[in-house]
Write a protein that binds this DNA or RNA. Structure first.
Lengths: 158, 158
DNA sequence: TACTAATTGAAAATGATTTTCAATTTCTTT
DNA sequence: AAAGAAATTGAAAATCATTTTCAATTAGTA
């Protein structure tokens, strides 16, 4: 299970002078199996529940390392906590963007019209990187709004 | 100066049972004149320099209120501080998206291909709001990368 | 197997943001 | 224009996510 991935991760770590360790392996495995949008706390407690006592600090450090190396994406939905998910190549069928409820924090991955989005993103990316001499590494598209549940709750209140 | 705006702001505040106050007026004026991407600290010290002693807490509260009412956009470039800017209608000529350097935090507003972006965003927005029963209020498009300065610095280091 | 450098984790420190609460201000109503 | 009710302010304290510190441990190499 996950052997190929392990090799990939190990190679990536080697390239930047880092080592593959038990905690890192466990954290990465967890993220691979839970293609969600996890906070540090989410991961820390999930692993604790599986009897993996990995320090909170280690979770922070591992996630940061993986973000630096493009394995994970880090993003923010406005609640003051960072969230992490596996990074998928722009061309991958799993690549997606986010629809976020700003009341309850619900996050929906979408890939409707993803081809059109990607095509346009690439065009804009090319223009911007040339014009501003930027090396563009990533992008975020996020729609923000109110989900049906929260809209309902709000009506009841009024 | 800013009379029309003041009326608009006052009306907005009234609608939500809030009052127009000196601090709020000063903070909004400041944001109107500085179409940047300001942190709470930026604003607090800028006003202090103009001899406006407004409490840090009040700055936080005012900004949050304006975000809730669509006057300001709040966003995050990954450095742990929230940034604020005037919100422009999607159709406004001032509407823009961001190109961010993840090393130094440089933020560039761009509107190249903005018409195409908006057109696509509207299409996606319609689809998502129907499909997921969301009331969509806003969107973020952000490109992340390394600016030329930081790229240069990095070369020198190696 | 031994060594060197990287990693871990617990505790302490940091830094942004929120809460508390008494004093002040706004806006409506007389 | 004055009074009153409700909202707002600001300073200090509290909270909460994240980072730093440092001694003990572990991984990968020689």
């Amino acid at each position: 299970m996950g052997c190929k991935k392990h090799l990939g991760w190990r190679g990536m770590l080697k390239k930047c002078g880092c080592k593959m360790t038990k905690p890192r392996e466990i954290i990465l495995e967890h993220l691979s199996k839970n293609c969600k949008h996890l906070t540090v706390e989410d991961i820390y407690f999930a692993l604790k529940n599986k009897s993996h006592d990995i320090g909170l600090t280690t979770v922070y450090r591992t996630l940061e390392l993986m973000v630096q190396n493009g394995i994970l994406n880090k993003f923010d939905i406005g609640d003051g906590k960072s969230r992490y998910e596996l990074a998928f190549e722009t061309n991958s069928k799993d690549h997606h963007h986010h629809l976020v409820c700003c009341k309850c924090g619900l996050i929906i991955n979408y890939n409707d019209f993803i081809d059109e989005e990607i095509q346009l993103l690439k065009k804009v990316e090319k223009e911007l990187s040339e014009k501003h001499n930027f090396k563009i590494l990533n992008h975020i598209i996020q729609f923000q709004g109110v989900c049906s549940n929260c809209a309902k709750k709000n009506e009841e209140t009024n």
